[in-house]
Design a protein around this nucleic acid. Structure first.
Length: 112
DNA sequence: GGGTTGACGTGCC
DNA sequence: GGGCACGCCAACC
C-alpha cells in the first residue's frame, strides 16, 4: 500500500519537474496552480524538503515573483543557482533574473 | 500538544 | 509610499 503520495509537497515537485529548460517559475504561480497564492511559502518549503527527500528537481528554476534568487543560499554554493540559470540562457543581475518575464513559465497558463 | 518558523504573496494602514 | 499583519501547510522545538 502506498502512503499518501499526493501531499502538497509532492504536487509541488511534480509541477517544478515540468518546468522546461530555460524557463523559470515563481513560488506564487505554482502555489496558485495547486491551491492558493497564499501557499507560496509551502512551495519554498517543499524545495527545502526536496533536498532532504533526495528528490532531483530543477529547484533553481523557481524564484519569487520578483525574479529574485531568494533560495540561492540553499544550494550549498551561493553561485550555484545563479550559474545554473545562466547556463540555461537566463540573464542574472544582482541575484535577480533580468529577462524573468520573458522566460516566465506559468503552470496556470501552460498547464490546463 | 501548542507555538514558531519558513526558499512567499497580497492586502491594509 | 514604506511597513506590518494575515494566510497557506508542514516541520521543528
Amino acid at each position: 500500500m502506498k502512503k499518501q503520495e499526493h501531499s502538497f509537497f509532492e504536487a509541488v515537485w511534480e509541477v517544478v519537474a515540468l518546468i522546461p529548460y530555460g524557463k523559470v517559475s515563481s513560488y506564487g504561480a505554482i502555489a496558485s496552480y495547486l491551491s492558493t497564492p497564499k501557499a507560496a511559502r509551502m512551495v519554498g518549503w517543499a524545495m527545502n524538503a526536496s533536498h532532504a527527500a533526495k528528490i532531483n528537481i530543477p529547484a533553481h528554476r523557481v524564484v519569487n515573483r520578483l525574479g529574485v534568487l531568494s533560495g540561492k543560499s540553499h544550494f550549498g554554493q551561493i553561485d550555484l543557482m545563479e550559474n545554473l540559470l545562466r547556463n540555461e540562457g537566463l540573464i542574472i543581475s544582482n541575484d535577480k533574473i533580468v529577462n524573468f518575464e520573458q522566460n516566465f513559465w506559468d503552470p496556470n497558463k501552460e498547464l490546463v
